[in-house]
Write a protein that binds this DNA or RNA. Structure first.
Length: 268
DNA sequence: ATGGCGCCACATTGGCGA
């Protein structure tokens, strides 16, 4: 089972790339961020014609998230329960027994911006809800654009970014708090090359020079982490004409391993 | 290295992203 998170930076502009991605990569689940579309403009027909189902929630100009899936989507949740928010940044659904949580976490803009405390509060609300959600779902995947580079290994030039937005200690603490819920960073389950990133600035030839950050992540609960066979970044999508500034991140789960896990360690 | 690029909207410039 192939799970993907991709910040498309406008689904209107990137729809042809998404259609090509579905046809060539054959993913099972794709979590999209920054669709930037109101629900009445969402391209449901195109996605269904490609053999996928989709659940979405969006708004004009900013934010917007969606889950594209080969299999049925049930228990769809829009927004973080208990957290009042105009911004459409979270959608969750159950697919093949896996609770899929798709997030577009706030950017924060700058440490002295009003958007920064909002970012921290948003993560706290997400964590509080996930803690509850995890009591009901042993198989949960948290995918999306976290807008946090967890470690200096995830930053092209740690000195340049030191203590700035996306890497500040309070943000990194929020990421660690998610891991402390029992989630694993799928990318770090495997030996990886150095300087693998998921986002590169459009300016200054950021991609060509690999001046990037790893801020898009797929976190997995233990049963899914044990069944995870690979976690990679699909850099080829960043090489296309008119690319998103983010590349898709991909995790593969062995359904056979997942099933044997369930037999070996039944839910308590 | 202040910006640079790309996307969006009550647009032809400014806000925002990261």
């Amino acid at each position: 089972m192939k799970l993907v998170a991709w910040n498309v930076n406008s689904l209107k502009v990137r729809l042809p790339q998404l259609m090509d991605f579905l046809a060539t990569r054959q993913p099972d689940v794709v979590c999209l961020q920054e669709t930037k579309l109101t629900d009445d403009k969402f391209p449901t027909a195109d996605i269904e014609a490609a053999g996928y189902r989709v659940a979405f929630v969006g708004q004009k100009t900013y934010n917007g998230v969606a889950i594209v899936s080969r299999s049925e989507l049930t228990e769809i949740q829009l927004g973080i329960p208990g957290f009042e928010d105009e911004q459409k940044r979270m959608i969750a659904a159950t697919v093949n027994g896996i609770r899929v949580v798709c997030v577009y976490c706030p950017n924060g803009q700058a440490l002295d911006s009003d958007k920064y405390p909002y970012k921290l509060a948003w993560f706290d609300a997400l964590t509080l809800w996930l803690k509850d959600e995890l009591t009901r779902h042993s198989q949960l995947a948290l995918l999306g654009d976290y807008n946090i580079a967890p470690d200096d290994r995830d930053v092209h030039d740690p000195e340049l970014w030191k203590d700035g937005i996306l890497v500040s200690p309070p943000e990194r603490e929020r990421f660690q708090t998610l891991l402390a819920l029992g989630l694993k960073d799928s990318f770090r389950l495997f030996e990886q090359p150095e300087k693998v990133f998921s986002w590169w600035d459009y300016r200054m030839m950021g991609f060509r020079r690999n001046h990037g950050l790893r801020i898009d992540h797929i976190l997995l609960t233990e049963p899914l982490a044990a069944a995870c066979t690979s976690s990679t970044v699909d850099r080829d999508m960043r090489k296309l004409e008119r690319p998103s500034d983010h590349a898709p991140v991909v995790a593969e789960i062995s359904l056979v391993a997942r099933e044997s896990q369930k037999l070996d360690f039944p839910a308590r």
